[in-house]
Design a protein around this nucleic acid. Structure first.
Lengths: 122, 122
DNA sequence: ATAATAGTTGCATGATGACACAAATAAGCA
DNA sequence: TGCTTATTTGTGTCATCATGCAACTATTAT
């Protein structure tokens, strides 16, 4: 059974997962969760490889899941700024925000390195 | 035993979550899942800030969760090669594998950028 | 207006995962 | 030998989330 302690440390209020720590350059967990799902990662990789904006139904053809699920995944990536969505008639074109994505991860790498103790060079 | 470095390449057999796509430089989802949990991210940030190896019970003092949970989180990060564990008597010292971590994220950034269409410069 | 197509959203379900607590392991000390 | 401390592991519970399917919205064509 859950104890009282865990109950109110649960902090299930919305958006609590944002902003993890004081170190600048470390992304929040929501952003990382967005790219850590294997299906979303494959969708992202597909869009990166495609080199051009693609519509939802076309993307979905490459995955053994329902279009609605793909749409949800795309929305998650879009909400984190990873993808850009542009509606054109009936279709919605999704594309990768390359510079944004790479800058986040490069910033993460730099944040880690900047704290790296000189002696730790293993 | 756990001072041996690469254990993180071990469970390649069962993990269909391993190796997401054909693009070199994109980490697999298990690695990203390891850093995408908010508690683990805070633990990692704590270790980065600490600038030196810390034992489990000391790390746990900074978080409102049970030591056992912290131990599990540390194991997950260790299994992904993010942390190094060194047993010294009763205690286990955990430290950040800075170069490994930053190289993964820098490689991710480069992988994204290398596929970036020239015109897409925002 | 009706129909058809593209995409999103509501809802139920099964899987995964974080957590607390207890028990087990391991190492040092009386 | 116990006894204490540090850490890991077993187990059950609760929350979150990926998924499928159905319903809904939006846009275009007949």
């Amino acid at each position: 059974m859950m104890t009282q302690i865990s109950k109110h440390l649960k902090k299930t209020q919305k958006g609590e997962d944002r902003g993890c720590c004081g170190i600048p350059g470390i992304p929040d967990s929501r952003f990382l969760k967005a790219v850590s799902d294997s299906t979303r990662l494959r969708i992202l990789a597909h869009l990166v490889e495609a080199q051009e904006p693609q519509i939802v139904s076309e993307i979905a053809k490459n995955f053994p899941i329902d279009v609605s699920v793909v749409s949800r995944h795309l929305a998650i990536l879009r909400n984190e700024g990873i993808l850009l969505a542009e509606k054109q008639g009936k279709e919605v074109y999704y594309s990768v925000r390359y510079e944004f994505l790479s800058s986040i991860f490069r910033g993460f790498a730099s944040a880690i390195e900047s704290c790296c103790p000189p002696k730790e060079r293993k």
